[in-house]
Design a protein around this nucleic acid. Structure first.
Lengths: 342, 342
DNA sequence: GTAGAATTTGCAAACGTTTGCAATTTGCGT
DNA sequence: ACGCAAATTGCAAACGTTTGCAAATTCTAC
C-alpha cells in the first residue's frame, strides 16, 4: 500500500536520467531498453520497463526527434487557394483527412494538420518543410498552387499530393482520373436523354478543370452543347448562385454535370424548388459518391472516387519516398455509380 | 548573377550557427535577431534577416521546442469509443476539426491530430500528454471515456473537451446543452401533432444520452410514449437498422427524434421508401443543423449547435488554461430550427 | 583456471536552439 | 580625453534523448 503516485504525470520521474537513477543503470541503457534494442540484457530491460510503467514515464519526443533527426510526424497541408472557405464544407477532403489519420496511425506516424492561405503566405510549403517538425508532407488538393508545388518537388522527396495528374508533371500525385470521370458523366447524361449540357461548378481548380475537359471531350465529339455555370463551394453562396443559374438558363439545359456531389445535392434542391422533375426534365450527375449521394431525392447518379484507396495510396507512396524511393504517381480509375438522377 | 541557390532548402545553411558564421556574429545574436528580441542592434538584425531570407533559413522547431519546453502544437484527440467507425462519417466532428484548425492557426499554433481507439490502448490520453509533443490537448467527444478524462484533468490543466456537461464534473468542457436540445425537439414533435415518439440513435455516448433524457423529460411530463430505436452511426449499417426499426414499429410511431442530422437524413430516405409522408404521417427532428439538413426532402427541422462558437470557445479556453487560468466550462444554447419535417 | 569471444553496460559527444551572465562596445556628458 | 551608464554582443550551459566507442562483465571451450 506504499505505492503512492502510480502513473501520475506529475510524478518526479520526467527524464530518462531520473529513470536510470531509479533503476541503477545509465541513461544510455534505459534509452536502449525502452527502444527495444537487442543489446540490453533481458532482466535489465524488464526492470526498466516495469519502472517506466509504474511511473508513467514517456520519453520526450522533442528531444528524441532532435537527436534522431526525425519526428515521426507527417504534415498534412490543405491549401485554401481561390476560394478560402472552400474545403470547410468539402466533405470529401475531410473524409480523406480522417482516413489519412487512421492510415498514418497504423504506420506509427502522427499527423500534423495545417490549413494554409497561399495568398497571404508566399512560401507556406517551404516553411512547413523547413520547420523540422515533419518527416514528410501530404498536400491535400493542388488548389491554384501547382507551380509552387512543382518547384518544391524538385528538391524535396518526401512529399505526395492529392490532386490531378497532368502529363509530365514532376511532383508525385495520387488522385482520380478526373478527365475520364468527366467523360463518363457526360456520356451518362447523354445516354439518359440529355441534349443540352451544363457543367456546374468552378473550373479554376485543376481537378475541376479536368472534369470539365472530360465532359467537353464527349460533348464536342457528339455535337452536344455544353455550357459552364460557375459556382463557389461555400454552402451559403452555393444555393443562391445555383438558383440564379437556373433562372437564367430556364429550359435551355436538360443535363447537369455537377463538379461535386455537394453541388449536385444543392442543385437538386433548387431544381425541386423550381418544380423541375429529375430525371425526367433535367438529368444530373455528381462527382465523389459521398454518403449524401444515396440520400438525395431521387438518389444521385455520380462518379465515384475510391477515397479509401486514395488514402492508402497517399501514405504508401509517402512512406516509400521517406525510404528514399522515387515513386511514380498513382491515378485511380473513377467509377460510374448509376442511381436515379440520370 | 552569382547568387546561385537562393531560397533552396538544399542550401548549405541549415543551422543558426551556419547563419551566424555568414553574418559574422555569434549564434546567440542570430537567435535573438530572428526571435525579434529588442536587445539586438537594428542594423545587425537587418543583416541577419536579409541573410535568413536569402538562404531560406528556418530555425529548427524541434530544437527550439526542446530548449523552450514548449512546442507551439496543440494536440487534438478524437477517441473512437463504442463504435470505431463512428466519427469518420460524422460531418459534425470533421467540420469542428476544420474550424479548430483555422482558429488555432490564427493564434499561432499548429494542430496535431490523433484518432485513438481507447479499447486497444488504456492510456491514450496520458501518452499524448506525456509525449512532450503538445503544449495542450483538445479532446473531441467524450465517447465512453468520461472517467479517464476526469482522472487526467485533475493533474493536467491545459486540456479542454468537446462534449456534454455533467453536474459536478471536473474537466473543462465546451458543448451544447444537449438535454435542453432534447426537450426542444420533443416539444416540437408534439406541437406538430406527434402522439407517440421514438428516439433514433445510440444512447451510450453521453451526449446522445443527454439528448434522449431531455426528450424523456418532456414525454413523461406530457404523458406521451417514447421508445428508443438504437442505431450505429456508420452509414452502411445505419440504413439497414433504420429499415428494420421502421418495419418492426410500423404505424406505432408518428414522431421521431434522431440523435443526429445524419441519422435523420438516412431515416427520411427510409420513410420515403416505405411510403410514409413527412411530416403528415411521421414528424422528424434532427440534431446539429448540418448543411444536409436544408437539403433533405422535405427540409429537416433540427436542433442547431453553434459549431463556430464551439470552436472559438475551445481554443479560447485552452489558451487561457495554457496561461495558467482555471477556466469554467462553456455550455452553449441549442436553437430550434424549424423547417418542414416537423 | 584461463584465453578469447560474446554479451552488456557506461561514457560522452552530439542534435540545434535559447538565455543568464559577463564582456565588450557604444553613446553621452563633462 | 575620460568616466559612467546603456546598449550590444559573445560564451557556455542547458533542454532530454540517442549512439559510437570503449570498458566491463559474462559466457564458452579448452
Amino acid at each position: 500500500m506504499g505505492e503512492s503516485d502510480t502513473k501520475g504525470r506529475g510524478a518526479g520521474v520526467r527524464t530518462i536520467t531520473d529513470l536510470a537513477r531509479l533503476a541503477g543503470v545509465s541513461p544510455g541503457t534505459v534509452s536502449r531498453a525502452l527502444a527495444g534494442k537487442s543489446l540490453v540484457n533481458a532482466r535489465t530491460r524488464e526492470k526498466i520497463e516495469a519502472l517506466a510503467r509504474e511511473h508513467g514515464f514517456r520519453p520526450n519526443q522533442m528531444a528524441s526527434g532532435l537527436r534522431r533527426q526525425k519526428t515521426g510526424v507527417i504534415g498534412v497541408a490543405i491549401p485554401l487557394g481561390h476560394d478560402v472557405r472552400q474545403q470547410i464544407s468539402d466533405t470529401f477532403f475531410m473524409t480523406l483527412l480522417g482516413l489519412l489519420a487512421d492510415e498514418l496511425t497504423d504506420k506509427g506516424y502522427d499527423l500534423m494538420l495545417r490549413r494554409v492561405v497561399p495568398m497571404n503566405d508566399e512560401d507556406w510549403l517551404d516553411r512547413y518543410i523547413g520547420s523540422g517538425m515533419v518527416d514528410g508532407v501530404i498536400v491535400i488538393g493542388q488548389s491554384d498552387q501547382f507551380d509552387r508545388i512543382e518547384e518544391v518537388a524538385d528538391g524535396y522527396l518526401p512529399m505526395v499530393v492529392w490532386g490531378n495528374h497532368t502529363q509530365g508533371q514532376r511532383h508525385c500525385v495520387v488522385g482520380t482520373d478526373n478527365r475520364l470521370g468527366g467523360r463518363m458523366a457526360a456520356e451518362r447524361l447523354i445516354a439518359a436523354g440529355a441534349t443540352s449540357l451544363a457543367f456546374l461548378g468552378d473550373t479554376a481548380p485543376i481537378e475541376f478543370a479536368a472534369r470539365y475537359a472530360g465532359a467537353r471531350d464527349v460533348a464536342m465529339r457528339l455535337g452536344v452543347p455544353l455550357r459552364v455555370l460557375p459556382t463557389h463551394l461555400a454552402p451559403d453562396q452555393l444555393s443562391e448562385e445555383i438558383a440564379a443559374h437556373l433562372a437564367g438558363n430556364a429550359g435551355e439545359v436538360d443535363g447537369i454535370f455537377a463538379a461535386t456531389d455537394t453541388i449536385a445535392a444543392a442543385c437538386m434542391a433548387q431544381l425541386r424548388a423550381r418544380g423541375l422533375a429529375v430525371p425526367e426534365q433535367v438529368r444530373i450527375v455528381g462527382f465523389d459518391d459521398l454518403p449524401i449521394a444515396s440520400q438525395t431525392v431521387p438518389p444521385l447518379t455520380t462518379i465515384r472516387q475510391d477515397i479509401h484507396a486514395g488514402a492508402r495510396g497517399l501514405v504508401d507512396l509517402l512512406l516509400r519516398r521517406l525510404a528514399g524511393e522515387e515513386t511514380e504517381s498513382l491515378v485511380l480509375p473513377p467509377q460510374l455509380k448509376i442511381r436515379a438522377s440520370a
